[in-house]
Design a protein around this nucleic acid. Sequence first.
DNA 1: TATATTCACTACCATTTTAGTAGACAATAG
DNA 2: CTATTGTCTACTAAAATGGTAGTGAATATA
Lengths: 144, 144
Amino acid sequence: MLSQKTRYTIRALQHLADRYGEGLVPLSEIVEKQNIPAKFLTVILSELGREGVVLAQRGKDGGYALALSPVDIRYGDIVRIMRGSLALVPCASRFSHEKCKNCVEESNCRLRSLMLQVRDETAAVLDRITLADPIVLEPAYGAE
Amino acid sequence: MLSQKTRYTIRALQHLADRYGEGLVPLSEIVEKQNIPAKFLTVILSELGREGVVLAQRGKDGGYALALSPVDIRYGDIVRIMRGSLALVPCASRFSHEKCKNCVEESNCRLRSLMLQVRDETAAVLDRITLADPIVLEPAYGAE
DNA sequence: TATATTCACTACCATTTTAGTAGACAATAG
DNA sequence: CTATTGTCTACTAAAATGGTAGTGAATATA
């Protein structure tokens, strides 16, 4: 599962992408429209600032904006920044590989081989789509 | 990420699948070959017993065996049993849908639409492969 | 320059989840 | 009747999660 923090991050960045080119967006607007706890969002946006994904300006009329064009921010990148990896097990990460603890020899681990496939399919989706891409909305669960 | 418990579960079931048709496999064998803490594995296997995935016999020469043919146990099923869902967010589960907390309206949530795509790709991999299928091993990380 | 506004950063905290362990009990074979 | 092997409930330590508090720093404007 993605953590709540990662979910907030993605929704906040989507919001900033929608406002891209329109100047600075204050925290309060994102908080209201995206239903994210204000203090927590400052933590998130500061972190994204340090990562170079958003830029911020303090003071009156300050706020946030994307530091890159939405077309240059892939969903996969966002997840990697927040979670470290797209993979479901540490040993199946292609960018930040780690040994799983208490596992069998890696070259002999079928779980790993399988999870590499899952990772690659996940990457195929998340690295193909950027914050600039329109996303076709699915109907809500339970809708006719 | 999959929890350590889920990883142990999958490796234990793979082990039992390899021994399918060869009678009962004692806990100690799985513990040794799969490098899983013994007590923890009893917890896991008991749970799988209650789920109807393995059957067990106590006493001398007792042990565990798959309750179903390996061909009838998909990796997706295992993950669903242990984790509840294949999805990366609660609202993107197809079998055990739940609302995400502090989210926007579901019919308007682009994160959800995207994560449904990821879930479906994940399911395409994990529900296609069963414990009976051979898995092509990937070379270990760092191998030439 | 004083003040209100807005973001930055560190530290802290409560709760939940995770990864086990302990220990008593039940079944079975010999 | 005793060794062996699984069952089950309860417990625990450590880590991760989801925040909040509070202080400080930059900026616009009156």
